[in-house]
């Protein structure tokens, strides 16, 4: 299963959701696979805190569907977030883990899922996230996305994807600060709130 194909399928289902994602090649792939979601996506380069940030966003905007696009390496960096999701049971957070079984952005060394013994969906279920599934085909992935986006419990999809970066895609040029401003202004506009407001004159 190719990550880019999964992203294209997911993107077709999204309109006014908010997305937080990382890392490496998945950032450029999402930028291309779902261009209508660029402003609604916070592109990060982080290991271990994407789902935490997405959960915080979901806590702050409980009426809005939030999607975390995490990775096997990223989730393994802080498995504790699954226990927190299990305890807190957010109703508006869908977590998708791109599990390519490698650290692709640094050339492909294996992650702990590569040996076939570590099951991230099973870890999620045992942490209290009962709706946690593994997808190995595009049809499975798409069906799980439909269910996960409609769910009112935390939902995790571990997507088993290959380690081949989609060829020929446009690189995203902006950095973390520019991405944050774009994302924050989108949240402000769509939520009618002020997050980064004007300076005081005093």
């Amino acid at each position: 299963m190719k990550r880019y194909d999964c992203m294209t399928k997911l993107g077709e289902r999204l309109t006014d959701e908010l997305v937080i994602l990382s890392l490496g090649g998945s950032v450029d792939e999402w930028y291309n696979a779902a261009p209508h979601m660029r402003a609604a996506s916070l592109f990060q380069q982080q290991l271990g805190c994407v789902t935490g940030e997405a959960f915080g966003l979901a806590v702050g905007l409980p009426h809005r569907q939030v999607i975390s696009l995490d990775t096997d390496g990223g989730l393994l960096f802080n498995l504790g977030i699954l226990a927190t999701l299990g305890n807190e049971q957010p109703e508006n957070l869908l977590t998708i883990v791109w599990d390519n079984q490698m650290y692709l952005s640094i050339g492909g060394p294996r992650t702990h899922t590569a040996a076939g013994r570590v099951d991230l969906a099973a870890i999620a279920r045992a942490s209290g996230v009962e709706k946690a599934f593994t997808a190995t085909t595009l049809e499975e992935f798409d069906a799980l996305c439909a269910e996960g986006l409609a769910a009112s419990v935390p939902y995790v999809i571990v997507a088993k994807v290959d380690g081949v970066l989609q060829p020929g895609i446009k690189r995203k040029h902006s950095d973390g600060r520019e991405d944050k401003y774009i994302f924050v202004r989108h949240v402000e506009e769509t939520e009618g709130v002020v997050i980064m407001g004007p300076s005081e004159h005093n």
Partner: peptide, 8 residues
């Protein structure tokens, strides 16, 4: 950090 992004 995520809560900050929500405006809360």
């Amino acid at each position: 950090g995520g809560v900050f992004l929500s405006g809360k």
